[in-house]
């Protein structure tokens, strides 16, 4: 018992170097992050529905799209998750018919504010924000 204690102490004293292939911490972290993207999106089906709705709204400003044939998925690859959307485009809008807020003019963007809809943060984010506010009140 005493001998073992001395042994680990000596190991620590001489700073045993970590073996490269022994480091599984990064693997755990990366795998968890990928798994949680899938978990969170599958647990909250309304989240994906909400993303889809917002995406359609934004795209609609610039082009006519076929909403019926549009597909949207989270794809798991080895190391990461990506959002893949296939959106059939019927026609691109002419410059003149673009909504004013889409034109990249400094003056224009000062005058026009994005619609209330577009600025509203996601419910989960809202909840976090509310929580944070509550917490700061407590302190």
């Amino acid at each position: 018992m005493d001998f073992l204690m001395k042994f680990t102490f000596l190991q620590r004293l001489f700073g045993r170097q970590p073996v490269e292939q022994d480091q599984s911490r990064a693997a755990a972290r990366d795998r968890l992050q990928v798994a949680l993207v899938g978990d969170r999106s599958s647990v909250a089906p309304r989240l994906m529905e909400s993303v889809r709705r917002d995406l359609i709204e934004v795209l609609n400003r610039y082009m006519e799209i076929d909403v019926q044939l549009m597909t949207m998925d989270l794809k798991k690859e080895d190391q990461a998750v990506s959002l893949a959307a296939v959106v059939p485009v019927r026609r691109i809008r002419r410059q003149a018919s673009l909504p004013t807020e889409c034109l990249e003019s400094e003056e224009m963007s000062l005058e026009t504010t994005p619609s209330e809809e577009a600025r509203r943060p996601h419910p989960r984010k809202l909840k976090r924000e509310r929580k944070r506010r509550r917490r700061s009140l407590e302190v």
């Binding site: 620590r12 599984s24 911490r25 972290r29 929580k131 509550r134 917490r135």
Partner: peptide
């Protein structure tokens, strides 16, 4: 539920130091 807090249990500091375990920050 408000005020959700985390307790990380059974942390092995030397395994974290060797990069073999998720750290508290992770």
């Amino acid at each position: 539920m408000s005020g959700i807090k985390l307790i990380l249990n059974r942390v092995k500091a030397d395994m974290v130091r060797r990069g073999q375990m998720l750290s508290v920050q992770d």
